[in-house]
């Protein structure tokens, strides 16, 4: 199904009925109307002077300048979580998934960047879940030749979320606060189809893990704005230094993502040849198939 402007309309319940982070709250100018698209629908949002978050559906050529909660608009549900404004164009669950670590008072929680990428949401997620590219795309940071082996790991479904556990990878500079190369331990978590997180050993704490998330805001099937969420154990580095490290990594991934063809993720297991290291990618594609996802993918 397509709109008059030729855009696909998302009809997948598994994609429509989700929360999507559309902006980091500290970056939203108060009392202004911000327009964007979500799953090809024209939407707008605003944070009022009282801090209330509003979101509504708009006509594509909308020019509304001010709104308040009493305006007659096609309202959409909103939530705030982990420093982001979340909204939905479907019927989402009562709350955004939990990130328990974000409530720990000694953590640094910040948006590293919100960056537009000409790629489908599932391609962006799949890249985030991949370790094998580290030495080639993020040399001297997240990987280094000849340490290219991805040790075997396990994928599993936990309460409707997809996880990869027991992941390990040699990293010369795993975080901005790293002083030496380490065998970094990773857990990957996909709580909803277009949001993913990783938990990795922290140079600042032997007991707990740093949390990094990618909350993808799908504009269309082939263009996203990716929000990079950080929840770190680091009481030394400045916000600027932390962002700089993550933005560099993000920008290194960008040309790789934008040059993947087809832009939509093929779900047919025979479409792209996987290797053992791609276990999580295979599990992710199968999970999307099981959820009945057709938006942003080429169904099997």
């Amino acid at each position: 199904m397509t709109t008059a402007t030729g855009h696909a309309v998302c009809t997948d319940p598994a994609i429509l009925n989700q929360w999507y982070a559309v902006a980091a709250i500290p970056e939203i100018s108060v009392a202004q109307v911000h327009r964007t698209r979500l799953l090809d629908s024209s939407v707008a949002y605003s944070v009022t002077a009282d801090g209330e978050c509003l979101a509504w559906r708009t006509a594509p050529n909308d020019a509304t300048v001010t709104v308040d909660a009493s305006s007659q608009l096609d309202w959409l549900p909103t939530r705030t979580a982990f420093g982001y404004l979340w909204m939905s164009v479907g019927e989402p669950p009562p709350d955004v998934f939990e990130v328990q670590e974000s409530a720990e008072p000694d953590r640094r929680t910040l948006n590293a960047a919100t960056i537009g990428i000409a790629v489908s949401a599932p391609r962006a997620i799949e890249n985030f879940l991949d370790m094998a590219h580290f030495p080639y795309v993020h040399p001297h940071m997240l990987g280094e030749e000849p340490h290219t082996e991805v040790a075997d790991y396990t994928t599993e479904l936990r309460n409707g979320e997809l996880w990869a556990v027991d992941c390990r990878f040699y990293q010369p500079k795993a975080a901005v606060s790293s002083t030496e190369g380490v065998m970094a331990e990773y857990l990957y978590r996909v709580p909803s189809p277009y949001c993913a997180m990783l938990y990795k050993s922290s140079p600042g704490d032997a007991e707990r893990m740093d949390v990094i998330g990618i909350f993808v805001h799908p504009i269309s099937e082939e263009f996203v704005r990716a929000n990079l969420f950080l929840c770190l154990l680091d009481d030394v580095s400045s916000d600027t230094t932390i962002r700089r490290f993550q933005q560099t990594i993000f920008s290194q991934d960008k040309p790789i993502l934008e040059n993947q063809y087809p832009k939509r993720l093929p779900l047919d297991p025979r479409a792209e040849t996987p290797i053992r290291a791609d276990k999580m990618a295979i599990a992710y594609r199968r999970w999307l198939t099981d959820l009945g996802v057709t938006y942003g993918v080429i169904p099997a």
């Binding site: 500290p26 600027t240 962002r243 933005q247």
Partner: peptide, 10 residues
Amino acid sequence: IPVDFYPGWE
């Protein structure tokens, strides 16, 4: 000297 150009608009 790193400047937080985005998102800090430093």
